[in-house]
Simulated assay, not measured.
Amino acid sequence: MEYNGLLPHFPREIRLFIAAFVVILSVGFFTGLLFINETESNTPTGIEENYLGNEEDEDAEVMKFKKGDREMLTIVHTHILSMSLIFFLLGGLVWMTRCSKKWKLFLTIEPFLSVILTFGGIYLMWKGILWFKYIVIFSGILMTLTFTGSASLVLWQCLKPARK
């Protein structure tokens, strides 16, 4: 079965349905990034304070406390499950686009590695391996870039009719 370039050949209605899904998925994904920005978890210090607290810092504008065991397990569990489903669905659509297999492989496998490194890294940092905050930032940026690239590729090929 030939799947490379299949997406632009779908009927217009199905391509619009897929495009609507990817737009809403993107709104949800980028809203999560806005939340990260609001919690100031986009810097190494911010990530550390968000999960380990900042009770010792007398000059802190907002007092943050170390997350408990149940809260951390809930954060890691829900994010790994939901993000893996998001990237599985988006990856399935990527494989139907017209693009090189190397790019498709990168765009569909890398996010799973980033999910494990990001949320596993948050957990390991919370357990005391503080240098993982740098892995969390790097993998989070890479995850965002691959999501953006995948969503853009799918949207572009949904909205661009196939050549006859």
Rank of each mutant, 00 (worst) to 15 (best):
E2F: 06
Y3R: 14
L6A: 13
L6D: 09
P11E: 07
R12M: 13
L16D: 13
F17Y: 14
I18S: 11
A19H: 11
A20T: 14
A20N: 11
F21D: 12
V23E: 11
V23N: 11
V27G: 05
F30I: 00
T31V: 01
T31A: 08
L33Y: 03
L34R: 06
N37K: 03
E38W: 00
T39I: 03
T39C: 00
T43V: 01
P44G: 07
T45I: 05
T45A: 11
T45Q: 11
I47H: 00
E49S: 05
Y51H: 05
N54Q: 04
E55Q: 11
E61G: 15
V62W: 00
V62E: 04
K66I: 01
K67Q: 11
D69W: 05
M72T: 03
L73S: 06
T74Q: 09
I75P: 06
I75G: 04
V76P: 10
T78K: 05
S82H: 05
M83C: 09
S84F: 05
L85S: 12
I86L: 15
F87Y: 13
L93C: 10
L93W: 04
L93V: 11
V94F: 04
M96D: 09
M96L: 15
T97A: 09
R98E: 15
C99D: 14
K101L: 14
K104N: 12
L105I: 10
L107H: 09
L107R: 08
T108R: 09
P111S: 03
F112Y: 15
S114C: 15
S114D: 14
V115L: 07
I116K: 08
I116Q: 12
F119A: 05
F119N: 09
F119E: 03
G120Q: 04
G121N: 03
Y123S: 07
L124Y: 05
M125K: 04
I129G: 07
L130C: 01
F132V: 02
I137W: 00
I137Q: 02
I137K: 01
F138C: 06
G140K: 02
T144H: 01
L145C: 11
L145H: 01
T148H: 04
T148S: 15
S150P: 15
A151M: 07
A151L: 05
A151K: 07
A151S: 15
L153E: 10
W156R: 15
Q157E: 14
